[in-house]
Write a protein that binds this DNA or RNA. Structure first.
Lengths: 161, 161
DNA sequence: CTTGACTCTATAGTGAGCTATAGGGTTTAT
DNA sequence: ATAAACCCTATAGCTCACTATAGAGTCAAG
């Protein structure tokens, strides 16, 4: 009956499938993210269809980048959620960022250390003939690598990022 | 009736609770790892109790280290499993190591890049007064960071490690 | 004006890595 | 000899991040 169901459209808006295609994030995943308040459509059509603007693309890209770096959706929720509430909670953001930066630094160090452990291991493996019985010992190269964590409860770190 | 239930004990063996305490890995988790063949007791008492030697401690530490660096239990299974079968599958180990080393390098790079993004973001946040309306824009600093992945299907990487 | 591709909601299932519980047996200290 | 603290198996449940399914409505092309 109405001529234009998308009244507000300044630019062209994207339906969820189009957004999915442009970002490589599955439709179902986008809807799932919405239940977590990670992303919302700028409007809904009368039919209930979701419509997104271009910022949704950047938003999804940000989420994917953070995720690929081991940030959980809860982490991302925090960062994005705090933003939405304006600037009154800056110290909180500050803490969060400091925390993440520190943890990231630690994790990079540990990954670098494991990487060189593995490189040593690989080199030893290469230098040795297949049937050398001492290959058994090589495991100590891996098993023996020093491993100190900041907290005694080893599970803590993984949740800290 | 028998004087020493632990016949073979050259050194003193650990019961599962002691192993758990010494490593910080929960008893239930150790039993769970056993179902995955990641670790086994050196013997069972007549009662069915598990007894471990010291190598079990190093084994669990290795597993935790690898895990904290995003290796899955399946990855660890492979590395440890291959070891157990001797040296006949060296090329496979080689591939696995190469693969992991490469991926680790990539991930380190990406983490470094995110870290500096976050440092910029934090600095900007610090430089700006709490009530500055432009704080909104800061999000583009995070949302706008360049994000290129090696594969178009973004989910692949996480499973590759 | 119908067909097919798309969308909606709601709910259930997946896999990884555990954690908890039930219902029992064993060891150890008093 | 009895109670606490430990151990056993088997099974169920949990969190995270999705993915799939059912059952229904909507939109765009021919």
């Amino acid at each position: 009956m109405d001529l234009q169901p998308r009244q507000i459209s300044q630019d062209k808006l994207l339906k969820i499938g189009e957004l999915a295609e442009q970002t490589g994030v599955a439709v179902g995943t986008i809807r799932y993210y919405e239940t977590l308040d990670l992303i919302h459509p700028v409007q809904r059509g009368e039919s209930g269809y979701r419509f997104y603007d271009k910022s949704a693309i950047r938003r999804l890209q940000f989420i994917r980048k953070a995720q690929s770096l081991q940030f959980t959706l809860a982490d991302i929720q925090q960062v994005l959620g705090i933003r939405q509430q304006g600037t009154t909670i800056c110290p909180l953001v500050q803490d969060l960022l400091d925390h993440k930066i520190t943890h990231l630094g630690e994790q990079i160090e540990r990954m670098q250390s494991l990487k060189s452990d593995l490189e040593v291991y690989r080199q030893q493996w290469l230098d040795r003939p297949f049937d050398d019985p001492r290959s058994q010992e090589l495991c100590s190269l891996i098993e023996g690598v020093t491993y100190q964590e900041s907290t005694p409860k080893s599970h803590h770190l993984e949740k800290e990022l």
